[in-house]
Design a binder for these strands. Structure first.
Lengths: 150, 150
DNA sequence: TATTGTTATACTCTATAACTATA
DNA sequence: TATAGTTATAGAGTATAACAATA
């Protein structure tokens, strides 16, 4: 997925270019880290959000993570099929599904988060605590400029 | 593509999560910035690399940008069809194509780079020069950890 | 044998439009 | 009429395997 530290011409000073490459590197290593779990970045994200907000519905999860309603359907189906989350009709609003994490879901999330911690450690090896905090801050400030938010 | 600054549970402290969101925000705004040009992130990247290394071949461009050979084919076809780059058989190695940017390609690249500068300014509004430089440095250090490079 | 480019293919992510059922 | 979820579909990015021509 990458290589050959070379002449990228006018791309060098562009934050967007390096953001893309760094994201690619992170995503590739993340996928490796999830090997054998059957999980992907999005699925872990959804599982984490559901775990943090029991009873939340699909649309809300999507809004939190920036995933369109239409695309949530099959993702939630995957997690339900894997028995990692439970989906019941919300009695207070029968259009909506109330999502909760199952015991296996909690175990899976714990396992994934441990693997993700190791993956982050490896990707950020050589980063001081201050640098990691700085990076988190800078990235968070960019996130808020998502044109789909405003 | 995003929204609802809320409880992301255990994702909050993960660099990978924020990298993904920041990348998404940048990519969405980049796409808007390219509106009307017919260009996309990858195409601009290729054009920039070819412009910086005249005579380079497809495989090399792919290695520089982290794009697989197989995926380069249609991308190069697009740029050739748009008459932004010229492709001739390399006389020194008749397996390879020698790529050069055309005059229209140069004009297109200049136009895109101006639009990209504006887009970066907007996405990084509020960033000091030091912060931007710091971000570039931190991202570059992550890039080098791409598992596909090692 | 290795490499350049090619074709075919497949999976994932993202996006839009139109539908249903509830509110 | 608005919202939650659904279906269908399409474009784009990324990945692998197998092949032809050339080195």
């Amino acid at each position: 997925m990458a290589g050959e530290q070379e002449n990228v011409g006018p791309l060098g000073p562009l934050v967007g270019y390096h953001l893309r490459r760094a994201f690619g590197a992170f995503a590739a290593d993340f996928a490796n880290a999830m090997d054998g779990t059957g999980m992907r970045q999005v699925l872990v994200g959804i599982l984490a959000v559901v775990s943090g907000s029991p009873g939340i519905n699909q649309g809300a999860v999507g809004r939190v993570l920036g995933i369109k309603r239409a695309n949530m359907v099959s993702l939630i189906n995957e997690l339900v099929d894997m028995k990692l989350i439970a989906r019941v009709v919300d009695p207070a609003d029968r259009r909506a599904f109330s999502l909760t994490i199952t015991d296996s879901g909690r175990a899976m999330l714990t396992d994934c988060l441990a693997k993700i911690e190791a993956h982050e450690q490896q990707m950020l090896a050589g980063f001081s605590d201050e640098e990691r905090a700085m990076l988190l801050d800078l990235l968070s400030r960019i996130e808020r400029r998502d044109p789909a938010i405003a």
